[in-house]
Write a protein that binds this DNA or RNA. Sequence first.
DNA 1: TGAATTGTGTGGTCTGACCACTCGGGTGAC
DNA 2: GTCACCCGAGTGGTCAGACCACACAATTCA
Lengths: 177, 177
Amino acid sequence: MIESARPPSKFLAAIAQIQEMIKTDRFQSGDKIPSERELSDRLSIGRSSVREALRALELLGLIETRRGEGTFLRDFKDHQLVPLIGTFIFDGDQNKEDVRDVKAILELGCLAILSRKSGFDFNEAGDSFQQQIEAADNRLLKNIWMIISDYAGSDTGNERLEELLAAAKQINYSERQ
Amino acid sequence: MIESARPPSKFLAAIAQIQEMIKTDRFQSGDKIPSERELSDRLSIGRSSVREALRALELLGLIETRRGEGTFLRDFKDHQLVPLIGTFIFDGDQNKEDVRDVKAILELGCLAILSRKSGFDFNEAGDSFQQQIEAADNRLLKNIWMIISDYAGSDTGNERLEELLAAAKQINYSERQ
DNA sequence: TGAATTGTGTGGTCTGACCACTCGGGTGAC
DNA sequence: GTCACCCGAGTGGTCAGACCACACAATTCA
């Protein structure tokens, strides 16, 4: 018997199953999810592995644990991943540039979407990008932007956006086809 | 005694101390770091807490664990954070329109970056976006784009990009400031 | 009625025990 | 000497059980 393909680690299995559970049981943001012990029972996975999975989810800001109370589903917003990863990732400048660029790209795209909507008036829009992202009404875009923004920190960095915008205006895309 | 300020969780303490240890001992990328049991001893923290800390670091792509061998420091560059987040960013019934839009936004941004680079010739670029993303030389952008592309499927969808591009050209961003 | 107490359930942590795996050193046959 | 084999030590992976600290609700009692 060759029989390769070692089963995936319990840890990963737990993440997947918890994710699945959240989806099928239609948990909403703020809802309490089953306790560690119950998850351990229901998934037939040791509590320590369940805990490791929950830690991962917490790190990603998807859940919040409160001692004595329980574990709760959370909105994407404030994940504390950033300060942690920041100390490692952001000592190289290259990555910081990357993050800022991607952030600017998303904002450029957001503006483009807003501009596409007939009748949208930029002067009406708030001055914080947060509001413009909301106005764009694209949840995926918003999610990604929020994550990236956290990484990028609260820099102003409008110059980068303008730079990209200027570059975009010079693209003659259809020419390439 | 008032004495508030509950001590930080062992889990976080472990992360900090491991991080510190890596720094002071000048571990290099690829080096083997002490075993879980030894860390548990040296830090006077239970192995389970040490493991949770290591999991977090692994999740961030900062270390790599190999069963039977040990735990190794890793080059932070390829952190698999993004693919992991990707599975969560999409909350299931995500509007397909949204996904396509974001994909187009990223591609628009990619073009803008390429266009910004003086001397870049679009005609030289390959016809697949894969190659253009590579040329943009922004790992974060590439990661996100690949995830999105997976979800968006292999649609053609150039019209959406052109649409956005046209919209972008009409933005007078600085006017807003 | 209102304050104090108790009970129950939760996350947080530690410990000891296995398992599965890798690697290197020894052992023996050739 | 050389090579294949085996075995033991070390490592991460997992589990079960035991406490602790805490939050909250029910209960008790003044």
